[in-house]
Amino acid sequence: MGKVKIKKKETRIDMTAMSDVTVLLLTFFMLTSTFLQKEPVQVITPPSVSEEKVPVANLLSVLVSPEGKVYLEVLGSQDSTDNKKYGSENVRAHMLQYMAEHYNALHPGANISFTPEELATFSKCNAFGVPITRMKEWLRLPTDQRDKALEAGPGIPIDMNEDPNKPNEFQQWVQAAYNSIDEELRDAVVKGSGISIKADQTTPYSVVNVVMDNLQTIKMNKFTLMTALKTEEE
């Protein structure tokens, strides 16, 4: 009798419970993960003890490459479909329109306008940085070539400009964010938490200084610098 019982005993382990657990974990990671956004230049931010986190919404980040090329990334308030005013995509489309109008106003002879399709394409771009005169051309490129064109391109035109009445293109973009239709982004930019400079630690100060001076000229004296975490040594 005893012999028969031992023979019938199952040696395989039931994997159902294990599978349940892994599926649960998988769901958790899928829902919580935010993928790293692709950036035109890779930068290693310098360490600092500051513990303030980078906001996930309402942020205009100025990406500065070591050579001095400037790119912008815009995040509106958390994306919502029911409201036309808010969300990254609406903000970007509005910014481009604002930019075209104000560029034309400042440069007599320039006649830049964008079709709704172009605005829609632009609103899907997380990072951008081409002169406004070449924006149409850039938006016509297929998605995969757009990133390469950004890397190879000159970035947003920026120079030492101390006349707030004649802003350069970079300053106009910042003003576009300042006057964006998204009130939350506008508030964040005014308060200073909405503008962040992201530069590599090996970047010469003169390069970062150009960006800071440009912001200062258009009276944006408050902004943040993006840094990596470092623990305070006592």
Partner: peptide
């Protein structure tokens, strides 16, 4: 799971607030 764990950005960048004097 491994893929998603490696791809997520758990450590967020920090920010340092500064205020420049107006010119």
């Amino acid at each position: 799971i491994t893929f998603f764990m490696l791809c997520t950005t758990m450590i967020k960048s920090q920010t340092l607030q500064i205020a420049l004097p107006s010119n």
